[in-house]
């Protein structure tokens, strides 16, 4: 399963999404996330879902792969949905397992659970697309550019951007490493995939210790390698590629604004059928 997690990896390509300015991509993502959490009914949520689906299609990244990578967080999704189902007692009572009514399933709970699932899926679709379509160099440059105003407050923007990129870059490397260590311990009979829950958790020690050791080793090696190439913080480097906003960025931003405005507006002033779900979710 670990092999299927591709979040943080970069898939080179020439698609519309790949060619967007990385700064635009980050800003679009931020606006998108904010609006997604303002959304209060299925109509507005659907709009956002359509937006991220369109982005996925435009990026030409295989949806199958994104879906596979999403399977990894299924547990999280199911867990939040369950909580919603259990604790939301708004709306009509649909099912009452105990006569004293201490625990009921309501329409609010069911809609709420579905709403949450769709919201998380929508969120992950677009978020994973950012790293799928942007190389880590471009991503750092963009983050650094966007954070420039903080430089005046003496925030080490460049280092922060570097740290973020390194962290992102190392997700797939570490996952691969976990995979190898797990295989090696399984070869010695570690009950990582065969034992009961207790045994599995105990067996994890045999994975985490080597992983921790090798993470430190890697960090030290990387630091040495960077020093050997005379890396210093905040040196004024020129860039190989200047970032410039183009028609694609304005188009994508424009569409996002349109979608967001509609989503936000209908969240507060529901029209027509969107009214149905309004009460139960808010």
């Amino acid at each position: 399963m670990i092999k299927d997690i591709t979040i943080g990896q970069f898939f080179p390509g020439e698609s519309f999404v790949h060619k967007l300015d990385p700064r635009a991509k980050i800003l679009i993502l931020i606006v998108f996330i904010v609006v997604l959490f303002i959304c209060r009914n299925f109509f507005s949520l659907l709009l956002m879902l359509v937006f991220s689906f369109t982005a996925v299609i435009l990026s030409r990244i295989s949806p199958k792969m994104i879906w596979k990578s999403m399977k990894a967080i299924v547990v999280l999704v199911i867990f939040t949905a369950l909580l919603q189902l259990i604790y939301n007692d708004k709306g009509d009572v649909w099912w009452k397992p105990f006569p004293n009514g201490s625990f009921v399933i309501t329409s609010g709970g069911v809609y709420g659970a579905i709403f949450l699932i769709v919201r998380i899926i929508t969120l992950i679709l677009l978020t994973s697309l950012l790293t799928y379509t942007t190389s880590s160099t471009l991503l750092t440059d963009a983050i650094e550019k966007l954070l420039t105003p903080l430089k005046w407050l003496h925030v080490p923007v460049h280092s922060l951007a570097m740290m973020m990129t390194i962290a992102l870059r190392f997700i797939p490397t570490l996952l691969r490493e976990i995979d190898i260590i797990m295989s090696a311990q399984k070869a010695r009979g570690a009950k990582l995939d065969t034992g009961n829950l207790g045994q599995r958790i105990k067996a994890l020690v045999s994975v985490f210790v080597p992983l921790l050791v090798s993470s430190f080793r890697r960090a030290a090696e990387l630091a040495t390698a960077m020093e050997c190439r005379c890396y210093t913080d905040g040196a004024h480097r020129t860039r190989l590629r200047r970032m410039r906003l183009g028609w694609r960025d304005w188009l994508a931003g424009g569409v996002l604004l349109l979608v967001s405005a509609t989503a936000v507006f209908t969240s507060f002033y529901p029209i027509g059928s969107t009214l149905i779900f309004q009460a139960v979710i808010s």
Partner: peptide, 14 residues
């Protein structure tokens, strides 16, 4: 796994 003992590449990291 017990009958065929496999020692990985760079086993010292494990």
């Amino acid at each position: 796994r017990f009958r065929v003992g496999l020692c990985f590449q760079y086993p010292e990291y494990q």
